[in-house]
Amino acid sequence: MELNGGSVVAMVGKNCVAIASDLRLGNQALTVATNFEKVFPVTDRIYLGLPGLATDVATLRERFRYRVNMYTIKEEREIEPETFAHLVSSTLYEKRFGPYFIEPVVAGLTSPERGSKPFIAATDLIGCLNFAKDFVVCGTASSKLFGVAEGLWEPDLEPDELFETISQTLLNAVDRDAFSGWGAIVHVITPEKVVTRTLKGRMD
C-alpha cells in the first residue's frame, strides 16, 4: 500500500452517495504522477474505488470492466451495487493466497425499480466485505480519514452538503499523509445525474 500511496473514501447522503480519491501516484517517497485517478465508473450509477498497488489498480479495473460487461450481456440488465460488491469480493478471494494489493470501495445507487437507494461497501485485499451505513475509507490515509469523517459526517446530507463533507474529509486527511494528496477527484451520484469535480489540494 505504501509503495504507490493513495486513498479513497465513500459516503452515504440523502438519496445520494459520494466517492472520492486523491490523485497521487508515487514510487515510495518519489511522486511520479499527480493525475492518477483511483475511482472508475462501473455503470451509470455505480463507481468503484481501487486504492493500493498501482499495477493492480489498472489490472483490476480491466478485469471488472470485462466481468461487468459479461454480466450485462448474459443477464440483459445492469448489475446492482450489492451484486457488484459480491463480484468484487469473489474476484479478490479467487487470489486468496497471492492477492491483489487493493482495498476496493464500491459506491452506487440501486436500480430505480428497487428505489434508487444509496449503497456503499468496502473490502479488504482478499475480499472480506464491509457494508457500512455511513461511510467507508481505504488506503494509506485511512486512519486520518476515519477521524475526520467521524467528526464531519452526519445522516441525510443533501448532494451539495455531501460534496462539501466528503471533500473536506479527504483534503484534510491527505494533508496529514505523506503518501496521499496532490489534488483530489470527487463523484456525487444522485438518481438524476453524476457530478464529478476535480479539487485542488496542497502540492506538498
Partner: peptide, 14 residues
C-alpha cells in the same frame, strides 16, 4: 484520527 479534524476545525485548513 484527531489531528486532521483539528486542522480543519481549529486552523480552518482547506
Amino acid at each position: 484520527l484527531v489531528q486532521p479534524f483539528l486542522d480543519n476545525q481549529i486552523y480552518f485548513k482547506n
